[in-house]
Design a binder for these strands. Sequence first.
DNA 1: AATGCGGGGTG
DNA 2: CACCCAGCATT
Length: 347
Amino acid sequence: MKTKKQNADFLHVGRKLLDWYKIHGRDLPFRKTSDPYKIWICEIIFQQTRIEQGLNHYNNFIQRFPDLKTLAAAENDEVLLYWKGLGYYSRALNLHKAAHQIMTEYKGVFPQEYDDILRLKGVGKYTAAAISSICFGKKIPAVDGNFYRVLSRVFADDFDVSKSKAFDYFSDLALKAMPENEAGTFNEAMMDLGSEICKPKNPLCENCPLNEDCLAFNLGKIQDFPVKTKKTKPTDLALQYSFVEFEGEFLIKQRGDDFIWKKLYEFPIEVPKEWNAFITRQKTVLHKLTHKNLSIVINHIVVESREMMEIFADENGFMIVNEEEAHQKSFPKPLENYLADRFKSKL
DNA sequence: AATGCGGGGTG
DNA sequence: CACCCAGCATT
């Protein structure tokens, strides 16, 4: 059974959260700024990505592209290069598009209105809310996985977070708990509590500033929340590549922007049948993605002349690169690993 | 409303 | 092995 909560009770929880954050909040590079460009970059990078995983990427990215103008002027390939290994590569493509969007539609000045920010490519309701609140003080909750977890537990709310309506539902809950004029801090505090204390598994409830108020904790039902019914089932996919090499140079080509690994580089998939005679070894790599179990067979082919590669490259749109040049391109993780293995003797 | 999209961490 | 992470675009 659910008890009716007064607005004052929600606010009480929100204030406790802010008090905790002022002492225990994480010291992160993007916490020191309210530059919407930097907050935007950080929010995109950390979509579906843990802080520890993306922190170096964020620092490198900001160092290379310190402002909007620099990013907009950059080559697409270089933006992709700085995204290498982060995954969800459409984020990098949309990021670059949005940079151009701001240059042309907003004369290079980052828009301040939630509705305008929301129209940027790759920016959804969460990111628009985060930028609006952190940079421009708008009172809008940035509802993410942390919000779902914390709020569903504190209020023992079994609303299914995999439903489309969950965002608006928990936005309303969060809004009631959000003190005036501290929206940005509140949003950051919720993220920190969610990742440091109110973790998915083994939450540290004994150290939680909200444990007196947390219904799920006091009912001993922490593990029942949040309720999430959606189940993602990976499918199997077999890929075949040929690593075609001659004296340290090899063939690569950029992928399309559909399917997986958008705009990343890869080895040839089909090669002339005659080249089968040049296969020196074959390696099978198993690689797990969230939605796919990949089985990748890589034939290592050493052709007999550079001309063989040149003809093939001309006819099929491949480029011939050496290891150094390949470092300037972004490859899918399993191919990156293959290259690292192939060239590790060098150096 | 449902699906696809990476890579890495955790239990 | 399953589940999750500072979500979004597309259909």
